[in-house]
Simulated scan of single mutants.
Amino acid sequence: MKTLNNTSPVRRFGTLIAAGVLTASLVACSDSNGGNSENVSELTVGSSPSLAALSLQGAIANGHFEDNELSVNAVPNKSANDAVPQLLNGGIQVAQMDMLTFFKARSEGLPLKIVAGAGEQSTDGGNEVPSGAGVVVNPDSDISVPVDFVGRKVGVPAIKTQTWMNIRAIVDDAGGDSSQIEFVEVPPAQTIDLVNRGEVEASTPSEPLMSASIAEGKVRLIHSTDVPGLKGVPSSAFVATEDFVNNNPDTVRKFADAIYAAAAEVNGDREAALDIAEKQINLRPEQLEHVFVPALAADHPTSEELQKVIDLAIRYEVLTEAPDTADMVAQADGGN
């Protein structure tokens, strides 16, 4: 496997701790995240600037936060990994985070909890079945099924991320040997161009780039990045520090209520989702014409669902040990 940089989420938490950021951050948490003022009503939320943030943006657009007496300012995350120090330092109170980043943070002892579900795996996988992201090839490629990735150069956002892990599981479960895939880290905006130029034989665009490129005939879908059998498991969540959760139990409950109210409106209503995507996320109508609308979490993830993702991460050594799921999710009363 080829790595073009050394900044994957898995490798960077140790740097934070080694630099002494953790100790300073925990002090800042109690000062900035409501430690002296319980149940704050104003929140800054770091989120994905993409369709993955539909429930957050829907809750803003449709007044669900206002209905719960909250004022929410959404700011884009550079990455889920970059959101961790902002949470710990009180720069933001809540952050949307992919599950592997969250699990790694927990396993390193960082005091984070899930306050609401965000995204979940939309399908049970399948050849040529679309989802929020997928593996594509040139239209004339001889690759036709996932096991054909073995021995080929496949572009991914980063090594040991959710996309990388899911592709490995898809290939192995289909009878291939994913350890023989040559994974290459590529910038998300270049996933289509690099395939077309032949620099990689397959790559993993997300929406809306993937569906638009397929519709234009630039690439062909082989398989989504959804793992067969794992439909409904969490793919991302809204996370806060334990201090914030404990000091602001009503705020946490209201935030989750607003998120899930928006998710209930958007799930199954394509037009509602596209309206939010255009007005709140600033995607253009032509980008949305063929877009796949992802499934949104309508409730807290269960321990069983969390464990399924953890088991996969252990299998591919993204995690070296399994974090305990018992107290990962904040309860309505804010307790542990």
Rank of each mutant, 00 (worst) to 15 (best):
K218I: 07
T191H: 07
D173L: 09
A133I: 14
G175F: 12
R220A: 13
P146H: 06
E199F: 13
R152D: 03
A105G: 07
A118Q: 07
F183N: 00
Q162A: 14
E185F: 08
W164K: 01
V200E: 00
A133E: 15
I181T: 04
A105Q: 04
I159D: 08
D148Y: 02
A116R: 03
R168C: 09
E185C: 08
V195I: 13
V171K: 00
F149E: 02
G109S: 12
L112W: 00
W164D: 06
Q121N: 09
S211L: 13
A118S: 15
A174F: 06
V115G: 04
L194F: 13
T123F: 05
I143W: 01
A174T: 07
P188I: 07
V154S: 04
I192C: 02
L110A: 06
G151H: 05
W164V: 04
R197M: 13
V156I: 13
G151V: 05
D172P: 05
D173F: 10
P111A: 12
G117C: 10
Q180G: 10
N166D: 06
A189V: 15
G125S: 15
R168K: 12
A174E: 12
A118W: 04
P208T: 11
G151C: 10
M210V: 07
E182H: 10
Q162H: 09
A215Q: 09
E185V: 05
L112A: 05
I114C: 05
V147F: 07
T204D: 05
A133Q: 14
W164Q: 00
I143E: 00
E185P: 06
F183Y: 13
D124P: 10
N196T: 12
S211V: 12
S107R: 06
P146Y: 03
D148E: 11
F149Q: 01
S213V: 08
R152M: 09
E201Q: 14
S178I: 10
R168P: 02
L209M: 14
